[in-house]
Amino acid sequence: MSTAADSTPPVRDFVDELAGLAPHGAVSALRAARADATGFTQGSHDALFDPRATGLSLDERLAATSYAAHLSSAPLAAQAYRERLAAQHSAHRTEALALLDQLLTSDAFEIDTATDSGRLAVILAHTRALALLDPHPDQAALLRLKDAKLSTAEIVALSQLVAFISYQVRVVAALRALEATA
């Protein structure tokens, strides 16, 4: 027996958008059956990208996220976060986009934190280390973050952000694989 709830379209979240899931497909139904997991994932996303959050600026968070997704071989996620950064109306958006575009378009481009000690460059260098699975940065890497005026809370927030994006792109990849076989 069909109920009114059965005909209600499922709530779409950012993971659905990244995965390109059919709104009424089998994989969307599977996600709807796991509404808590879906809700917690979206809730984490919303908290990490809340424009009112203190510490790392939204520009810094979006640039780090786009770069982490790029390093995780998730070009659609990298582009989605880059587009969100481009849509910001902030003082540092242009600088963030320029540095991010250099990183996203050139495999040879590296951030040299010895010569480029800008805050965003240091954030992106740390993002790279974390995304490429160096979960135990050396003392020099942590000192560069401190020298760039990142607080301990901001360093922890950056690490959480990179970990979340790693999780998010893997969920999206799994959902795409399921959708391809459904």
Rank of each mutant, 00 (worst) to 15 (best):
M1Y: 07
A4K: 04
S7L: 11
P9S: 06
F14A: 12
V15S: 07
E17D: 14
G20Q: 07
G20R: 13
H24R: 08
S28W: 06
D36T: 09
T38P: 08
G39Q: 14
T41H: 10
H45W: 06
H45L: 12
L48S: 03
P51V: 07
R61C: 08
R61H: 07
T65D: 08
S66I: 03
A68H: 02
A68N: 05
S73Q: 15
A80G: 00
A80I: 07
Y81R: 03
R84I: 08
R84P: 00
L85Y: 00
A86M: 02
Q88G: 06
H89T: 11
H92V: 13
H92Q: 14
H92P: 06
E95P: 11
A96T: 03
A96K: 09
L100I: 00
L100E: 00
D101I: 05
L103W: 00
I111C: 01
D112Y: 03
D112Q: 04
T113G: 09
L120S: 05
V122I: 13
L124K: 04
A125E: 10
L130F: 01
D138N: 00
D138T: 02
A140S: 11
A141F: 00
A141H: 05
L145R: 02
D147M: 00
E154V: 07
A157S: 11
L161Y: 04
V162R: 03
A163N: 10
V169K: 12
A173H: 11
R176K: 15
A180W: 09
T181K: 04
